[in-house]
């Protein structure tokens, strides 16, 4: 009996989300939806359950906004490599593993499994229990950061690179939230600024140039004498 009620509630939720997604799609300013399903690399090997099928269906209605990959840590993803054999422990505790992660993202209210799916670590979970892949993590972030999510879809928030006047997937590169913000500690870390310009009376007092590489771009910066 309990199961039946659960199923009905679940079906209702799915319908609501489907409708919401439809509205989302109809929002002005979103690029033409690409119906072509991208074959996500490194996705879960586990067989899909009925609810997962439903999720996949509703995600398909959301345009593929991005072409970048999430910044998976080397040797960590797919998580199931280790986690498949581990029994999920839902208690809030100090971790023995993943010690490099220090949660600075509303840490008091949050725990790993609020976002990571306990049953399949290769996917994420939304607040409503729905599942999304890492490639679609913006769905997860967008739950709380609604304004930012909306602006990101329009291209006001976040970074877009590639070809400015082409909407073909791959031509315009949309960064995911997690490409810039570490989800466990989303605030930007201070960075070293590039050299200051020379003062007007020293515009020829330049010793040479040096090369810095930033995200695959080679930049030439000046070297000044003491």
């Amino acid at each position: 009996m309990k199961r039946l009620v659960g199923c009905i509630v679940y079906a209702l939720v799915v319908v609501t989300i489907l409708l919401a997604a439809h509205r989302l799609r109809a929002e002005p300013g979103t690029p033409a939806p690409e119906q072509k399903q991208q074959t996500p690399q490194n996705t879960q090997q586990v067989p899909k359950t009925a609810s997962e099928q439903a999720d996949a269906e509703h995600h398909a209605t959301i345009p593929k906004y991005f072409t970048t990959r999430p910044p998976f840590s080397e040797g960590i993803f797919p998580c199931t490599t280790c986690h498949a054999g581990l029994k999920p422990d839902k208690t809030r505790r100090e971790l023995y593993f993943h010690t490099e992660i220090s949660l600075k993202h509303a840490a008091k209210q949050r725990w790993c499994l609020d976002c990571h799916d306990s049953e399949n670590r290769d996917r994420l979970r939304l607040a409503n229990g729905d599942h999304v892949t890492f490639e679609e993590s913006y769905m997860l972030c967008g739950q709380c950061h609604g304004n930012v999510f909306r602006e990101w879809k329009k291209g006001i928030h976040g970074k877009r690179t590639g070809l400015w006047n082409s909407d073909k997937p791959g031509d315009k590169v949309y960064l995911l939230c997690v490409n810039c913000h570490n989800p466990h500690s989303p605030q930007f870390k201070p960075i070293k600024p590039l050299p200051l310009p020379v003062r007007p009376n020293e515009i020829t007092n330049i010793k040479g140039t040096s090369t810095v590489e930033i995200e695959g771009h080679k930049l030439y910066i000046p070297v000044y004498g003491k």
């Binding site: 960075i191 140039t209 590489e213």
Partner: peptide, 13 residues
């Protein structure tokens, strides 16, 4: 988010 700096000095000859 920190960019990876690879500094190579190639002075103007």
């Amino acid at each position: 988010m920190e960019g990876i700096y690879m500094k190579r000095r190639d002075f103007l000859k």
